[in-house]
Write a protein that binds this DNA or RNA. Sequence first.
DNA 1: CTCGTTATGTACCTATCGGTCCATAATTGC
DNA 2: GCAATTATGGACCGATAGGTACATAACGAG
Lengths: 194, 194
Amino acid sequence: MARPREFDEDEVLDAALRVFWEKGYESAALSDLLGATGLTKSSLYKAFGSKEGLFWRVVERYQRDFLDFRHEALAEPTPRRIAARLLEGVTELHSGRRNPAGCLELNTALSGSTEAEPIRQRLVRGRELFRQRLRDRFEETSATAPLPPGMTSDDAASFIMSLIQGLAAQAKGGVPRETARRVVRAALLSWPES
Amino acid sequence: MARPREFDEDEVLDAALRVFWEKGYESAALSDLLGATGLTKSSLYKAFGSKEGLFWRVVERYQRDFLDFRHEALAEPTPRRIAARLLEGVTELHSGRRNPAGCLELNTALSGSTEAEPIRQRLVRGRELFRQRLRDRFEETSATAPLPPGMTSDDAASFIMSLIQGLAAQAKGGVPRETARRVVRAALLSWPES
DNA sequence: CTCGTTATGTACCTATCGGTCCATAATTGC
DNA sequence: GCAATTATGGACCGATAGGTACATAACGAG
């Protein structure tokens, strides 16, 4: 039909992912993305429409390749095991030697430019959606094993979400994995074993 | 001696504080600061040297005027009361109707530009210093009332710091104060009363 | 071999970034 | 009233931001 692409889209997305992860949406300059991917401006805009277009493709990939543990976590049979799997998952993710520090989404969602405001809001909405799914799973599984006494499913979900954000922020600040593990242990002390 | 200033430094710092708080260091453009303070570029540079110079003056003010509850918290006599006062303090701070959402320092410390990297690191260092003070106070006061069983002072301090960051991130995302309060309650369920 | 189509490379665009320069204004000490 | 000193207003700066225009290059279909 026409001239074929000279780049591999998977490789490009992986390279762009690293850049956005390290810098967040705003601080990731177009020139950074071009350098990392090897594309020219023309190719990038032809293929992805805009910086934001590329970003959403990257987020999709991030969730698929790096946030997959969330599904596994939600499939666990008790509140404690759900929470544990979730918190251990983020710990490994955010402090992996191969990955940039911190969380791609949080790194973006905490910046304050008016330009990126719609992006921020969409990320926040996604987070809230996951919180609801978490709450619902806590509700369902609390029949099998109880939540900590005095905590509703909703409380528990908000608590875990806060901790996840906190761990991501800490990781970005260079807090070592072992410390994160101890935080997770501490957080779950009062969660009944199945 | 010479021509007097036409602006009130306190008012200027307060105005700049709001801007930096809302946007973080990087996203706060010079034009935003000039608009909010009413200064001209010349006056700002004469008085504060640079954007970064102004920023540190603002941080100083932020800690003095808005983070004062930290000192009161550390003065509490038991681990639980220290933690409670701290967490309630950040809850009120970050979700106050009069204040911008989230935390000035975190909003800045999570952005990823290379330009702001030194600033980021200095903020992170300050955070670590406070963590150590918190740990020491937990250690001292754990004689009066115990920490949750299985938690060392160091664990407890890291746990509380993570939660503080998490609450700040949540607040920036628009999570309401009441939710934050429930998170705090949940986090402290296993902390022995004095 | 040519035509339609899509990809690429380069030059260019406007807006904005933080920051500097310098002439001018306002004050106090003399 | 004059000199010294400091503050202010505004023009100006190079660098960079994201994005566009357009000419050229590489392919498949006929």
